[in-house]
Structures are given as C-alpha cells and as structure tokens.
Amino acid sequence: MAYFRITLMRSGIGMPLKVQGVLKALGLRKRMTTVYYPVTPDVAGQIMRIKELVDVKEVDRPLTKQQQREQRRPEKGYHVEKRGSEQTSNYEGL
C-alpha cells in the first residue's frame, strides 16, 4: 500500500485560517515535521490545499517517529571490550 510522505517546508503562519486548519488536521505543527498518510482521494485533496507549503513524496511504508529518529542517529563508535570489574576480580583471585 502506498503512502504520502508529507513534510512541511514553509510555515503556515500568515496563511488563511482554512489552510492553517488543513495543516492542523494533517498534524503538521511546525516546519520540517513529517507525517505519513495512505494515498486516498481525501488526503490528496488536503495536500492540494497546502501544496505550496509542503514537500510530498509517495513511499511504500510509513515510518514512525522513533524510526525516523533512528535513521538520523549516527553510529555510537565504541563498544565495551572489557569490564573493569572483571579485572579487579582477577586480581583478588591472585
């Protein structure tokens, strides 16, 4: 099933109340928020009302907010190789 990925690129401040209402209905609260909706005629109509403000792309699957964050997260860059407590226990054994 296809989904619309809608990202608010320009703020709705100063727009007519109807446009701001559409943004609110879609859950676009501030710039650069991304929401996913299934491809249906009603969502397409909503996008048409705010087409100057948003970036739209059709994607295969929606991403949750956690997944989006996880994509952006850089790699940790380390792992614990040896615990300090293990070493001390070895010394105690000696």
């Binding site: 380390y78 792992h79 614990v80 190789e81 040896k82 615990r83 300090g84 407590s85 070493q87 001390t88």
Partner: peptide, 11 residues
C-alpha cells in the same frame, strides 16, 4: 561504563 572499563573505538 565504569572507571576501568576498556572501550574499543572502531569508527
């Protein structure tokens, strides 16, 4: 992590 731990930095 605690003091004494050995970390491997791999990036």
């Amino acid at each position: 992590v605690k003091p004494g731990d050995v970390l491997r930095l791999d990036r």
